[in-house]
Amino acid sequence: MITRSLLRVFLPCALAFTLSLPSIGSAQDFPSKSLRILVGASPGGGTDILARVLADKFSAGLKQSVVVENRPGASNTIAAALTAHDQPNGLTLLVATNTGQAIAPHLIKLSYDPRKDLQPVGLVAIMPNVLVVPSSSPYQNLKELLAAMKGKPGELKFASSGVGSTQHVGAEAFSLATGVKAVHIPYKGSAQAHMDIISGQVDMMFDSTSSAMSQILAGKLRPLAVTSPKRSLALPDVPTLAEQGITGADVNTWYGLFATGGTPPAIIGRLHDELIKSLQMPDVQARIKGLGGEIELMSVEQFTAMNRNEYDHYGQLLKASGIKLE
């Protein structure tokens, strides 16, 4: 028979033992089954490529299959919504860009809050945007292009991969900084835009290096400036906008890994560790460098702060530029 005195000793010990056991969903039993990585863009683009690189490395590191699912549309927010509304168990991940995380939320009514319903895991890569013209363009440098824009206001055309994309926002930021405007021609993706730029139907584009590098290396597009604070490692001979006297127009494309909001911290930590390990692998670094990207290792806390700061920054920029979905 258990006496009250024994209970006073036994119950606290039992409780302490129970609390010390790994909880369901802890890093110790994660993952117990396959994972999926959602991508808000079509196959073959920069987001898709990075997601498949991570899927391969995560599969090996976590010893579970990892499937990439493409859910393009609505400025990357379809895939984001699916992630936001899933179970917070770390098994559904999202490779997102600042288009979906920091720009689209100010333009589209969403069924989720990207700051609360998507948990940052870590920064994957930063792709500087680059101002390009066709190789047949008469404009050999930024000074000549600006002179033409001022001499023919509203006549030159710039392409983007869609309203509210970083390409579109980058061009509008450039307009605000210089006081000159061009006509926006939105496309459904960079590949379609490149065809019209190369053929001379469109004059320029503020594209991400991940999309433009292959055409630049093939000699079909001429880079005039990068829109990052410092020169791109992939395009070291191309000056920044700031170096050419234009400030306040820095717009990059970044890619980050997110989980469903409410995912236990232990699982987020496990995923973050796997991400950092993957980003330090030479073949992964070479792949990202080949896309014109750069790796900056961040803690979960640092990336969370960056995500929130970007949300606020683009909210102010969109308000100043007057960009709206038509």
Results as ranks from 00 to 15, higher is better:
residue 136 S to A: 09
residue 136 S to T: 14
residue 126 I to G: 12
residue 193 A to L: 11
residue 159 A to T: 14
residue 138 P to W: 07
residue 134 P to W: 10
residue 107 L to Y: 01
residue 197 I to C: 08
residue 99 T to I: 07
residue 130 V to F: 08
residue 202 V to D: 03
residue 204 M to H: 09
residue 196 D to V: 07
residue 188 K to H: 06
residue 154 G to V: 12
residue 112 Y to W: 09
residue 140 Q to Y: 11
residue 117 D to R: 07
residue 117 D to L: 08
residue 142 L to V: 05
residue 100 G to S: 00
residue 163 V to P: 03
residue 169 V to Y: 01
residue 187 Y to A: 09
residue 150 K to P: 10
residue 91 L to I: 12
residue 161 S to R: 09
residue 96 A to K: 10
residue 183 V to E: 09
residue 131 L to K: 13
residue 161 S to Y: 07
residue 186 P to I: 05
residue 204 M to D: 01
residue 118 L to H: 08
residue 112 Y to F: 15
residue 153 P to H: 08
residue 101 Q to Y: 07
residue 173 A to Y: 02
residue 193 A to S: 10
residue 133 V to E: 08
residue 104 A to T: 01
residue 100 G to Y: 03
residue 115 R to G: 07
residue 191 A to Y: 15
residue 194 H to G: 06
residue 198 I to K: 10
residue 162 G to N: 03
residue 101 Q to K: 06
residue 120 P to A: 07
residue 164 G to T: 00
residue 140 Q to K: 15
residue 188 K to D: 12
residue 116 K to C: 04
residue 127 M to F: 15
residue 151 G to A: 15
residue 116 K to G: 00
residue 135 S to E: 14
residue 114 P to F: 07
residue 100 G to H: 01
residue 163 V to C: 04
residue 160 S to R: 10
residue 144 E to H: 03
residue 143 K to E: 14
residue 104 A to V: 08
residue 201 Q to L: 14
residue 164 G to N: 00
residue 129 N to W: 04
residue 165 S to F: 13
residue 182 A to P: 05
residue 134 P to D: 12
residue 190 S to Y: 15
residue 162 G to K: 00
residue 94 L to C: 02
residue 132 V to D: 12
residue 89 N to C: 02
residue 152 K to L: 13
residue 143 K to W: 06
residue 106 H to V: 00
residue 164 G to P: 00
residue 148 A to P: 00
residue 137 S to R: 05
residue 110 L to D: 10
residue 113 D to V: 08
residue 141 N to K: 11
residue 166 T to F: 02
residue 102 A to M: 01
residue 95 V to P: 09
residue 169 V to F: 01
residue 204 M to F: 11
residue 175 S to V: 06
residue 141 N to S: 13
residue 119 Q to S: 11
residue 138 P to C: 01
residue 139 Y to A: 06
residue 187 Y to I: 08
residue 202 V to R: 04
residue 156 L to Q: 06
residue 163 V to S: 03
residue 173 A to L: 05
residue 180 V to P: 00
residue 193 A to M: 09
residue 115 R to K: 15
residue 168 H to I: 04
residue 179 G to F: 03
residue 191 A to E: 15
residue 117 D to T: 09
residue 146 L to N: 12
residue 132 V to Q: 05
residue 188 K to C: 09
residue 110 L to N: 06
residue 133 V to F: 12
residue 130 V to E: 10
residue 143 K to Y: 04
residue 157 K to D: 02
residue 201 Q to I: 11
residue 141 N to E: 13
residue 107 L to S: 00
residue 105 P to V: 00
residue 202 V to N: 02
residue 113 D to F: 06
residue 139 Y to L: 12
residue 111 S to V: 14
residue 204 M to N: 08
residue 155 E to Y: 09
residue 178 T to A: 05
residue 167 Q to C: 15
residue 95 V to K: 13
residue 191 A to I: 15
residue 88 P to R: 10
residue 102 A to T: 07
residue 177 A to V: 13
